[in-house]
Nucleic acid binder design. Structure first.
Lengths: 334, 334
DNA sequence: GTGAAAGCGCTAACAA
DNA sequence: TTGTTAGCGCTTTCAC
């Protein structure tokens, strides 16, 4: 990489002249500016990012800590973050916590050394189970703003982007109730994380409000064979005619299992699940889904963080933005 | 963030003394070392990464350019890269090219300003179609090593990690032939990228070698409704009894469609597709898959790049590592 | 209109 | 054993 120094030497001017010329300073003569710019172009000069960061005490880089990159929703949020960040001239450094508290802490530690101007993150499962939040507070106290999305730690003072999880399952359940479904089961393999719990509560509320129907919940654990568990559950509860799934995997497996058991979807059984468009394209009939608008969440998260980074003034009064889900009706419901 | 300067001031010693003490230099007296370390710990001192990067002319950061983060395979490779990089003390800056040549160029440009020590990337679809490779060469000429994975540009001199795409479909097809399948169709929606073409060739070779059977290929385009297209294809070609799918989406849809049309899988029709474990868990019966060991590819890519970054000596003689696929037999084949 | 110098945070050669 | 200094690449204030 060519530096200002080298350009200066070759042009027989000082470094500061070159710098000013390239930054269109009024101070420098037209002719000099032209000569400098020509040579700079010739050598494909680009200001060294690291030097700028050091000088400005700003890296124009965002640290993103994602629990699991293979989760489609999280990946999509990352996509949204990246897009918005790039648009605003920021890079993103990604750490994958792999749902581990330790790795989440490490990621925060590792990047809180001047590498980034702030963080966007979704809380790891283990951190939520153990309810640990000190590492977030420490980071914020070090002057690095955090924006949390989806799985947030409510007791940490920071900007947040969340989904209306409770309302989403409440509404979805009401939809199935409106179809006169009599035995609606809630299936989830995300019992331990905050959003999973909210989704269950939304379902419960709708069921209880309706009266006459008892809630029925199937919780799948990470180590379980989901296909087997759902199949035997369906066999034991022959009267199931509705499914609300808290996650795409449960939803897809439930739908396939129903079909496999000879049930007509949606005539005999109606299914709704949190899932993406591509997920619903991968089932037959297409799954009716609760869409989370992951990309939009990413966009908002990046906007919020960048705003916070740039306006040192806006301390205090943190925002929580709720991105509403949409129920996209496909062929797995009436 | 506390700096050496501040520690030095508080301890009434010079900056370099503090620096040396923290770096366990033999030069400094035990007592001083202790005092310095205590204060450093108290203030949670961490050396400023940016300053170190400037000093060492090394960022310990890898630029990763991914065509599509929603592609499970690519996401998994990213996961592998991140893990290995972290292990070796490197961070990763991620750019998403979104299959666009322009964005790929931008990503390269944007990070080739001192932000990263090298790149790991998979070539964007558009770049492969247009066969553009100058931007890769430029980057390499600037002294930044590149490691390409999966979709590689053969004419660029750099390290590469690839899949045995040709052999994979060749073998998979032979598997179906061994099941005495008479009409095996190759379905793909990745016709434009290098690996898609290789996969088709592997299929063709197996079919042609076998004689007596004609190759049958269904190409799906991005804009197509894959479900419709596959369904009508199956209806037109009632005698299809085998499917080789070049991508997971085609495989899943083909399997679901077959079931939907009343075909018994694998009795009436046998299916194999490039897909992940989770994909095969999301079909019923479980899909027999060609596994690409994406995570391992990521690991290798990171290792290769870091090695190249650290050994300035190893110029020339670039390696191409082939990560072999495995055929994991599940319930969609006999 | 141009240049010298300081400083961002750190390390390391050299001086004391 | 400790301190001074220079320098990584850049911007910016202040002199000339």
């Amino acid at each position: 990489m060519v530096t200002l120094k080298q350009l200066a030497k070759e042009l027989n001017v000082s470094i500061s002249t070159v710098s000013k010329a390239l930054n269109n300073s009024e101070e420098i003569g037209e002719d000099t500016v032209r000569r400098v710019k020509e040579l700079a172009k010739l050598y494909n000069y680009k200001p060294n990012k690291v030097a700028l960061s050091l000088k400005n005490n700003k890296t124009k880089t965002i640290g993103v800590i994602i629990p699991n990159i293979l989760n489609r929703f999280l990946a999509k949020v990352l996509f949204g973050i990246e897009k918005e960040a790039t648009k605003q001239g920021y890079n993103i450094i990604t750490c994958i916590s792999n749902e581990s508290l330790e790795k989440e802490k490490e990621g925060l530690q590792l990047l809180a050394n001047g590498s980034v101007d702030g963080f966007i993150l979704s809380v790891a499962e283990e951190s939520q189970i153990k309810n640990e939040i000190e590492h977030f507070k420490d980071t914020i106290n070090q002057g690095l703003p955090i924006v949390m999305f989806d799985r947030v730690a409510h007791d940490v003072m920071c900007d947040k982007i969340i989904v209306d999880d409770f309302d989403a399952t409440y509404n979805a359940t009401q939809n199935l109730l409106a179809e006169k479904r009599k035995q609606i089961v809630f299936i989830s393999n995300i019992n331990d994380i905050s959003v999973g719990k909210l989704r269950e509560r939304g379902y419960n509320k709708a069921i209880l409000e309706h009266g006459s129907i008892a809630p029925l919940v199937l919780k799948i654990k990470k180590k379980d064979d989901a296909q087997k568990k759902i199949k035997s559950f369906f066999k034991k509860n022959k009267n199931i005619d509705g499914v609300i799934a808290a996650d795409s995997s449960s939803a897809i497996i439930a739908l396939n299992t129903a079909v496999n058991l000879g049930l007509k979807v949606p005539k005999d059984i109606s299914l709704i699940g949190f899932a993406s468009k591509s997920d619903s394209n991968h089932t037959l009939p297409k799954l009716t889904t609760i869409r989370q608008h992951a990309k939009v969440m990413g966009t908002h998260a990046a906007q919020l963080l960048i705003q916070r980074i740039q306006n040192t003034s806006t301390e205090g009064h943190f925002k929580t933005k709720i991105v509403k889900t949409s129920l996209v009706k496909n062929k797995s419901t009436l």
